[in-house]
């Protein structure tokens, strides 16, 4: 997304939702960047925390923004929900400059949020968090029968899948036939 677009979408960044942690490195002033999701709420994140995300880290190093430029041009992630982005930002802030533990128990247990989080983290390329999330999804499978998994994750059975595919094909065939008939009518 271009910088002009960003300017219209979030010209005046709202109150940053996360406070910067400046105690760790007092000598060199830490630089901050701004991100926003689908809900346009801007989150202020330190460069150290953003290092977890390979995508954002690459963007920062390529752009070379000053503090003012960064404030004026928050990184837009229109495909990520606001609450999911908040979760990601919180996680990055929590694990800023720290070695990542082998397990993370603070991940959401609800399947909707977890799957959205997996997609967001995959998009932002946060390797450690992605590992936790995938493990969490794998944990959901444990202790469940195939039918239960199918029900929880709303996966259609083979028969349902085939029927849906057939229907889709039929529909596409009908639509194509309708279009050709309309074209013939127009020609007449």
């Amino acid at each position: 997304m271009s910088s002009t677009e960003q300017g219209t979408s979030s010209a005046a960044p709202a109150e940053p939702t996360t406070a910067p942690e400046s105690a760790a490195a007092p000598e060199v002033p830490e630089s901050f960047y701004y991100v926003h999701g689908k809900d346009k709420v801007v989150h202020k994140v330190s460069a150290g925390a953003l290092q977890h995300s390979a995508l954002i880290h690459g963007m920062i190093s390529n752009l070379g923004y000053t503090e003012e430029q960064a404030k004026a041009n928050p990184f837009p992630f229109e495909n990520i929900d606001g609450d999911i982005l908040q979760m990601v930002v919180d996680w990055c802030n929590q694990h800023k400059g720290k070695p990542t533990p082998p397990e993370d128990t603070n991940l959401p247990k609800q399947k909707e949020k977890l799957f959205d989080l997996v997609l967001a983290v995959n998009y932002l390329e946060i390797k450690e968090l992605l590992t936790y999330c995938c493990k969490q999804v794998a944990m959901m499978v444990k202790g469940k029968s195939p039918e239960e998994i199918r029900e929880i994750w709303m996966i259609p059975t083979d028969a349902e899948d085939e029927a849906a595919e057939k229907e889709a094909k039929k529909r596409a065939g009908k639509e194509a036939a309708g279009e050709t008939a309309a074209a013939a009518g127009d020609a007449k």
């Binding site: 399947k111 909707e112 799957f115 997996v118 997609l119 995959n122 994750w153 709303m154 996966i155 259609p156 349902e160 899948d161 849906a164 595919e165 889709a168």
Partner: peptide, 15 residues
């Protein structure tokens, strides 16, 4: 993969 009517197929969303 087709989705169930009115419900979201979480698994097929993933790459």
């Amino acid at each position: 993969m087709a989705e169930k009517e009115g419900k979201e197929d979480y698994w097929s969303k993933l790459p």
